[in-house]
């Protein structure tokens, strides 16, 4: 397969996938319909969404083996399906629950990508704190039954098309990153050759990353560079002595060392930001207009 042929096939599949995704979102978004028509539209939209996801998987996973890839595939499907269900579900409570599922998927994606602490922190901070706050606000503010504004959307067609265009552009860009000068199918051998060429420069780091041999190849991915010579010449200089090694025992300790070492000022600024947000939200919530004070007081007390 020539590079041009492979790219055009991938591009066609990508275009079909993006079109299917847009049509599926348009069918699934609330458009003020009801009854049989809505149910038929939702079934067809789910079918189209499944087709779009399958096409995305077909374009995105043409490299690599099973194992880590399969785990990544499963958790990313959970994340994307949860996200899509979050924005198309009519009831906001179910929307929040789907968002929790999407968060679980995102945490899995972060774990597979080698950010253990961030995966756990996503679950703790988002699902444990922010989502519960959303549910509390829903409990305080949701009128009984399904509100009319949950059953209509602002311009569902234009929104779906805008999202699909953005997604198509982004994935096209990412695909161009992956394509580079060598053809897409020759990347593994090229990577192996480059890794072999670079191995003498990385010998000191290999003892560091010996627990996972794949981590030693991390900066040597030629697929993300425009020209392989530039990649091989620039990667040793940009290489840090402590790559985020998934299986290293002191992963979190190294993360903390980096956070409280190089980024100490940013940590202080984040602390100030949290304090300001806390004081600001208390100040805003305790300031109610005088004519509505009677109505708003029990809500304020319970908030």
């Amino acid at each position: 397969m020539t590079p041009d042929g492979g790219l055009s096939i991938v591009g066609t599949v990508l275009a079909v996938a993006v079109g299917c995704a847009a049509a599926s979102l348009w069918l699934l978004l609330p458009r003020g319909e009801s009854g049989l028509r809505e149910r038929a539209a939702r079934r067809f939209g789910m079918l189209l969404g499944a087709v779009a996801l399958g096409l995305f998987v077909a374009t995105g996973h043409r490299l690599g083996g099973v194992g880590e890839e399969a785990t990544f595939l499963v958790v990313s499907l959970v994340a994307v399906i949860g996200a899509a269900a979050t924005i198309v579900t009519r009831s906001p409570v179910y929307s929040a629950i789907w968002f929790a599922l999407a968060l679980a998927g995102v945490a899995g994606v972060l774990l597979v990508l080698g950010a253990q602490f961030l995966g756990v922190a996503t679950i703790v901070v988002y699902a444990g704190a922010i989502l519960v706050m959303f549910l509390f606000v829903l409990m305080l503010a949701q009128p009984t039954g399904m509100a009319s504004y949950d059953r209509v959307s602002n311009e569902p067609l234009l929104s779906a098309v805008a999202g699909a265009v953005l997604l198509g552009l982004l994935t096209l860009f990412i695909g161009r990153l992956s394509a580079g000068p060598p053809s897409c199918c020759a990347v593994p051998t090229k990577a192996a050759a480059l890794a072999g060429a670079n191995r003498p420069t990385n010998e000191s780091d290999e003892a560091d990353a010996a627990t996972e041999p794949a981590a030693a190849d991390t900066p040597n991915t030629p697929a993300l560079a425009d020209t392989p010579p530039a990649a091989s010449s620039s990667s040793p200089t940009t290489r840090r002595p402590s790559p985020p090694d998934m299986l290293a025992r002191d992963h979190v300790a190294r993360l903390g060392g980096e956070l409280f070492g190089r980024h100490l000022l940013a940590v202080e600024a984040a602390g100030v930001l949290l304090l300001v947000a806390l004081i600001g939200s208390i100040a805003i919530v305790s300031r109610t207009p005088p004519e509505e004070r009677l109505e708003a007081r029990p809500r304020r007390a319970s908030a």
């Binding site: 995305f56 490299l63 690599g64 890839e69 990544f72 997604l167 990347v187 993300l224």
Partner: peptide, 22 residues
């Protein structure tokens, strides 16, 4: 198993989540 596909797939998943949020 080269890490490059996982990096690219992570970027694709991030783009999908961002587009859905949009």
């Amino acid at each position: 198993m080269t890490p490059a596909p996982l990096v690219l797939d992570g970027l694709v998943v991030g783009a999908m989540l961002f587009a859905l949020g949009l």
